[in-house]
């Protein structure tokens, strides 16, 4: 069964690349989206027989989740006017980033769940062997090899690094895209939320990176939760100062970032379809962001660092 799953993922990856190729020319654009759509349906259907998926509750939750979100997204996408399309793209893109971050969240919860048991069984064995108390054995184990009692220890260093990077990028793309949606939809008009927004942004970014590094070494759920919260906060702060005219470029950038996050989480959970589709979108989105900025005659750095030095008193 796994062979069929992997073969279908390969086919989906090919269809996605062909679809994007088609969408880059006016004549074949409509065929392109249909090819990509076929790839998506095949990949989704075959995942129902993925060897890792089990449990009646889980199956029910998957079906309910897809059905509810699918119907709502279909309805909202059909209903929206042509001029409101860019903010809908931002909204759906943010959802993708959030999904990538949530995948990282589940993997970290799994890692933390397996840790205490692992450590305790080791401590049990050590206390039996050496004739010391269980608490002393556990303390000794923690002291000598903290690596076993960490997210990195449970997931492996490479998986942990990419899961954390994907979570960081995913959370930023999620909340940033939501702000982009709110601004384009006229629900939010402010250009700063706190005084000296840009300085605060640097501090928040530094803290986010710090907690990302701590997540690698930690065995505490609180550290992971703070890391995710900081990522979300940074996404909001980074999108708030950006002006309405620059929004399409920023949405394209968040789109590329979401692609990258999906690619990284694909590595973390060993899913080649996600790695290929995510990375292709990450690269294509980066190029597209540059092309869009160029078409608007606006260097990308101007867009990103808009409002530098003019944040004071801006409302």
């Amino acid at each position: 069964m796994n062979f069929i799953v992997q073969l279908t993922y390969l086919l989906a990856a090919v269809l996605f690349i062909l679809g994007l190729k088609g969408m880059s020319s006016p004549k074949t654009a409509r065929k392109g989206i249909i090819w990509a759509g076929v790839g998506m349906v095949l990949a989704t259907l075959v995942t129902f027989v993925h060897p890792a998926v089990h449990g009646l509750t889980n199956y029910l939750l998957i079906i309910i989740g897809i059905a509810v979100a699918g119907v709502l997204a279909w309805w909202s996408g059909r209903r929206v006017g042509m001029t409101e399309m860019p903010q809908m793209v931002a909204l759906y893109n943010g959802m993708g980033g959030g999904a990538a971050a949530a995948i990282a969240g589940v993997e970290m919860l799994r890692a933390l769940r397996t840790l205490p048991g692992d450590l305790q069984s080791q401590a049990q064995a050590l206390s039996n062997e050496a004739g010391i108390s269980l608490a002393a054995a556990e303390a000794a184990l923690r002291a000598e090899g903290a690596a076993t009692a960490s997210v990195a220890g449970a997931l492996g260093a490479d998986v942990a690094i990419l899961a954390i990077l994907g979570a960081l990028i995913g959370t930023v793309a999620f909340s940033g895209s939501l702000v982009a949606w709110a601004k384009l939809d006229g629900r939010m008009k402010r250009n700063s939320l706190v005084p000296a927004q840009q300085v605060v942004n640097i501090v928040v970014f530094g803290l986010t990176v710090l907690f990302g590094v701590m997540t690698f070494f930690t065995d505490s759920i609180a550290v992971v939760a703070i890391f995710f919260a900081l990522g979300l906060l940074f996404g909001v702060f980074v999108a708030v100062p950006i002006g309405g005219a620059d929004m399409p470029v920023i949405i394209s950038l968040f789109n590329a970032l979401t692609g990258l996050a999906v690619g990284f989480e694909g590595y973390a959970i060993g899913n080649p379809a996600m790695i290929i589709a995510g990375t292709v979108v990450g690269a294509a989105g980066t190029l597209l962001t540059q092309l869009m900025a160029k078409a608007m005659n606006r260097p990308l750095t101007n867009v990103l660092f808009a409002g530098w030095g003019s944040t004071e008193g801006a409302t």
Binding site: T47, H50, N58, I62, I66, N93, G96, N255, I269
Partner: peptide, 25 residues
């Protein structure tokens, strides 16, 4: 085609749904 392609690539990273299904599964 810039905006439609942005939207199209946005759809393609919707493949994250298979990852979400696996972790929930």
């Amino acid at each position: 085609l810039h905006t439609p392609l942005m939207s199209g690539s946005n759809f393609v990273h919707g493949i994250v749904v298979v990852g979400a299904m696996v972790v929930l599964g």
